[in-house]
Design a protein around this nucleic acid. Structure first.
Lengths: 95, 95
DNA sequence: ACGTTATGCAAGTGACTGCTTGCCTGTCAA
DNA sequence: TTGACAGGCAAGCAGTCACTTGCATAACGT
């Protein structure tokens, strides 16, 4: 369904927000790359399956898009769903 | 603590987002007013205690501020914590 | 003073969430 | 073809969350 609520739910978890930080820093990473960089740069000891489930959720919310190439799967951040989210309460007058 | 995670957690629930919608429409409502308008305008049948707990959470996140006056407690929306939240991933270059 | 109104506090419950565990599929190099 | 590598699927478990239930506090009208 990829409704608005999915975006908020995806952003509710700190690990998922850190994943978005990582993809902002270097877009198009594989699952193993993300795991390695989360561990080294952010000090997160999450397992591969945990990160994979987080990526599934981010993809379901439309915040991450994927591209398969052989046995690799690259993950790209998509900030499009983010803009209208908060603007909902910020805009008092007509845009 | 009122950290960044509290704001995301507060926004994760659809009822709390509807409460923010209501306060955007009419600021400074009491608990009973919010309950009544949530039921009539938004079709939500949440109990008073449920709404009260949601308001506590929104206040802990800094999204709602309160002012007591006699036996009434008025709730005001505060959008200040919202701006830097999403901008975190939107800004690629210097603002 | 007494009852009503508006709100607060806290324990208990069912559902959801994040994570683990174990096994399976598909791809590439030798 | 065999083994290693990248990723996927699904069941189970512990913690959290939203909600209810029941009682308590405080302010106001009469």
């Amino acid at each position: 369904m990829r409704g608005v609520g999915d975006v908020f739910k995806a952003l509710a978890d700190p690990t998922r927000r850190t994943i978005l930080d990582e993809l902002t820093d270097r877009d198009g990473q594989t699952l193993f790359e993300i795991c390695a960089r989360l561990a080294s740069k952010h000090g997160l000891g999450s397992s591969r399956q945990a990160i994979s489930q987080h990526l599934d959720l981010l993809e379901a919310a439309g915040l991450v898009e994927t591209r398969r190439e052989g046995r690799y799967k690259f993950h790209y951040i998509n900030t499009t769903p983010l803009e209208p989210i908060v603007r909902r309460w910020l805009t008092k007058g007509p845009t």
